[in-house]
């Protein structure tokens, strides 16, 4: 059944507003450690999750909040977990990278590529216990260079496991441009394992949904895994405070303290040839700019989905007001002290 664009937009908007609140709380110092948001990935999450139901499993990476919200996780307990509270989803033990909901067969991991084998296991359990149900693995394009994930692509084919491998490709492995570290093409790589593979513009949630809908029958009928490659952009970088994004947004504060040690190193006696040194310095100085222009080359998935709904401006306005009020209420309740 084709996805309902209103529902998809509602999910994406709720997830975006929720994560903007997470960012606000993190900036205020109320959330510790790293913070990897899924802002920019919502089109992929919504397009896939809209086709999941009872008994389907999700193996998540370190950006698990949006898919969990869309799957129906309790947003108050999710936010409380991110705040490290005893009344949070995992009693404050996990934090945003380690979210676990057994009822939704959903588990996340902060280890790159770990969602591949996890999803293969979920799918094995589906095959034995819940025929017709599937497992989704979400991961980034850089994880496609992790051995465990590549091994799980093969395992899933060998055992005909119903795994939908969803690769979110934003082109950057933290601060390293992914194509410079990746041999061949990812789609061809997946196909070489003998599974159907498709690529889609991940900023277009409805296209992701259509493609997922086209791939899932193969899994549900017991024919093994499939692979979906979806391009996207991380609007908040790898994590909040991302050095590359910060270098673009606040070049003086970020780059100035680096300049003197860098110049001193580049000019030290004994080292590479001048040409190699100047190449390295130029590379460092322009890397932030390249990351930001890559980010600007794709549209915000929310804007794109919203455009499809402009035909009914009253309903759209009402929906946006409702979602905003709901998220505000979630934050208010989540921040309340509990006895």
């Amino acid at each position: 059944m084709p996805a309902d664009p209103w529902l998809i937009y509602r999910w994406m908007l709720a997830s975006r507003l929720f994560e903007q609140e997470v960012a606000r709380l993190w900036h205020a110092g109320l959330v510790s450690g790293e913070m990897h948001l899924g802002t920019g990935e919502e089109g992929i999450d919504a397009g896939v999750v809209t086709h999941l139901g009872e008994g389907d499993a999700m193996a998540l990476d370190h950006r698990g909040t949006p898919p969990l919200l869309m799957r129906g996780a309790n947003p108050v307990s999710l936010l409380r977990e991110i705040l490290g509270r005893e009344d949070g989803l995992c009693r404050g033990r996990g934090g945003h990278m380690h979210l676990f909901i057994p009822e939704l067969l959903s588990a996340s991991s902060g280890i790159v590529g770990a969602s591949g084998p996890m999803a293969a296991g979920f799918a094995l359990a589906s095959q034995q216990l819940r025929p017709g149900r599937v497992a989704v693995a979400f991961f980034g394009e850089a994880a496609m260079n992790e051995g465990a994930l590549l091994e799980s692509l093969n395992l899933a084919v060998a055992w005909r496991l119903p795994v939908l491998f969803v690769c979110k490709d934003n082109g950057w492995s933290i601060t390293t441009h992914s194509p410079s570290m990746t041999g061949g093409a990812l789609l061809a790589r997946a196909r070489a394992f003998g599974m159907p593979a498709a690529d889609v513009d991940g900023t277009d949630a409805l296209a992701v949904s259509a493609m997922t809908e086209a791939l899932l029958p193969h899994l549900r009928q017991g024919n093994g895994p499939a692979f979906l490659l979806a391009r996207c952009v991380h609007l908040d970088g790898h994590f909040l405070g991302d050095a590359l994004l910060e270098a673009v947004r606040r070049p003086l504060q970020v780059l100035a303290p680096m300049a003197i040690p860098l110049a001193r190193s580049a000019l030290s006696r004994h080292g590479a040839r001048f040409r190699d040194r100047s190449h390295a310095v130029t590379d460092l100085l322009t890397r932030a700019g390249r990351a930001s222009s890559a980010a600007r080359s794709l549209p915000d998935p929310l804007d794109r989905t919203r455009r499809a709904l402009l035909g009914d401006p009253d309903r759209l306005r009402m929906l946006e007001a409702t979602v905003a009020a709901e998220v505000r209420a979630v934050v208010d309740v989540a921040l309340e002290e509990t006895p």
């Binding site: 601060t175 570290m181 040690p261 190193s265 590479a272 040194r277 390295a280 460092l284």
Partner: peptide, 23 residues
């Protein structure tokens, strides 16, 4: 990410000796 993490080594010794690796 060592080229950024260890940028002072990268600037002095270049990309042959300070290499980014895939994940």
């Amino acid at each position: 990410d060592v080229q950024l993490l260890r940028r002072n080594l990268y600037a002095r010794f270049g990309a042959e000796r300070v290499r980014n690796a895939p994940i």
